[in-house]
Each structure stands twice: as structure tokens, then as C-alpha cells.
Amino acid sequence: MTLYVFGRIGQALLVLWAAFTLSFVLLQALPGDAVLIKFLSPDFGLSADQINEIRAAYAVDSNIFVQYGRTLFNFLKGDFGYSLQAGVPVSAQLATNMPPTLRLAGLGFAVAVLLAVSIAFLSSMAPFAWLRNLLQSLPSLLISVPVFWLAIMLIQIFSFRLRLVSVINPGPWESLVLPVATLAVPISAPLAQILIRNIDEIRTRPFIAVARAKGASEARLLWKHVARNAILPALTIAGVLFGELVAGAVVTETVFGLNGIGGLTEKAVGNQDLSVLQAIVVISAAAFVAINLAVDLAYPILDPRLRNRAGVER
């Protein structure tokens, strides 16, 4: 068991290191010299000496392997370099932009789980066949909707037609309603899909027939026997949901003009601000790896059937 845990942690660290290397290759090793491109532009009117000085300050004049080692070391210390555009440390930018994103993501995720669970259980409990079919096909519809368009539609309907949510000087909570609703949809769709599939699959199992034969009511069947078995496997897509969350946050913050990590990402791409994007990529990869690691380690604890198997594996 301990062997499994340590092996799994080592594997996670390996993937994280490789992700860092990939981001380094994409964003630092390949694109020539972003500093040169920026400061060579005539707006700055810098002399060749000054440019060399700046390049030395950003340490882009050294050997690529030296740069790699230095960047890796700095990232481990939590130093992500300087934003070319803003001229401030990336870590400072991240610190100011993180709270709004965490709030948005936390609320969005909570609403998404609520939405997905309601869709999944109603789609198997709802009184009419047409309603069940409608609910069952809802996730595949939601998955086909572009998030940015959904955001715009929500603004159009709730702010401009119904005038329920003010666009001019909204309150702190009012301004979160539409972004949270937008973000919840792309996360809830895959979750609802997997829940519906699990519920359908588990309802055909023999132990359900046995429980029913013993006189369990439909509600008891669903909550006591089906729900527990159906919700647990949904943990395996936690990593996928995190990816949706990040993509959703970038788009949502862009459309609603929120200053979070998503908005920062969008600006970094627009301004070719490589160090900012690299920091965001590496942090996201770290979060993804950590989530998957947590799920893998928690799964045997939550599911007793896997407890022994995990010990045997690896």
C-alpha cells in the first residue's frame, strides 16, 4: 500500500516535471526572443546597448540549458519571472488575480454539481417518459453549446430583455450571477452524462433486483443503492472537469470583463506575454496532477472493493 502511494506520487511528480518541460519548450525555447521582439519596436527608441542590458536582466541571453535550469529552480521557489507587458513579477499578478477566479470557480463548480446531480436523478425519476427523455438528452445539448455564446445569450436575455441583472454598476453578488451560471454549464454537462450512464447501468444490476424483491421503495432504491454506486465513479473525471473549469474561466472572464486568472490569460496571449502564460500553464498542470493524485489515493479509501487491489498493483 505505501509502495503504491509513493509510486503514485513519484509518477505525478514526473508528469508535472514533463509538463513544465513541455511548457518551457513551447514558450521559452522555441519562440526566438520575445524580449528582443518587444523592445526592438521603435516606440521604445532604445539603443543596442540598452537592449542588451534588458536582455541580460531578463536572462534571455544565456545558453538554453542554463535558462532551463534557472527557470526550473525559480519555479520551484515560486518565482515565475517578470511579466513583459506589465513589468511586475508574475507571482504578484497571479496573487491579485487569483481570489476573483477562485470565487467564480468555486461557485461555478458547486452550481454545476447541483445541476448535474439534479439532471441525472430527475432523468431517472421524473414522472413522464417524455420528460425523462428530455432530461437525458439535455447534457448532450449543453455540451454542444459554445461557452462564450452562452455567456452572451445570458447577458442578452437576463440583462437586456428581462432587465433582471443590471449591467451597469451591478452589486458584488449580482455581478457574479451570470458568470457563475455560464461557468456551471460546461462543467455540469459531462458530469451529468457520466452520472446518467452510471445510474442506468447500476439499475440493471442483480442486487437492485434483489433489493426491489425484498420490498424496497423506488426512492430507497435510488438513494441507498443506486446513488452511492453511481456517484463514486464520477470522481474519475475530476481532472477533465478541472480542464473545463479552466477553459470556462478564461472565456467567462473575457466575456464579462472580470479581472481574474482567465482574463490575465487572455491578455497574456494577446500581448505575447510568455512568462505569464507559462506560469499559468504550469500551475494548471500542477493542479490537474494534484487533483488526479488525490482522486487516485482517495478512491481505495472510498471504495472498499479496491482496497486490496490497489495494494497489489505496482
Binding site: 509538463a19 513541455l22 494548471s284
Partner: peptide, 19 residues
């Protein structure tokens, strides 16, 4: 492949776009 999956898809796309 695991590494490719570890970076959220939109961020991977954006890294390639910026490149």
C-alpha cells in the same frame, strides 16, 4: 500522452497559438 492531458486543453491551444 499523460503530459499532454495534464495541461488543460485551452491553455495548450493558447501556448501553441502564442508560439
Amino acid at each position: 500522452v499523460d503530459v499532454l492531458l495534464a495541461i488543460p486543453t485551452l491553455l495548450l491551444s493558447l501556448s501553441i497559438i502564442i508560439l
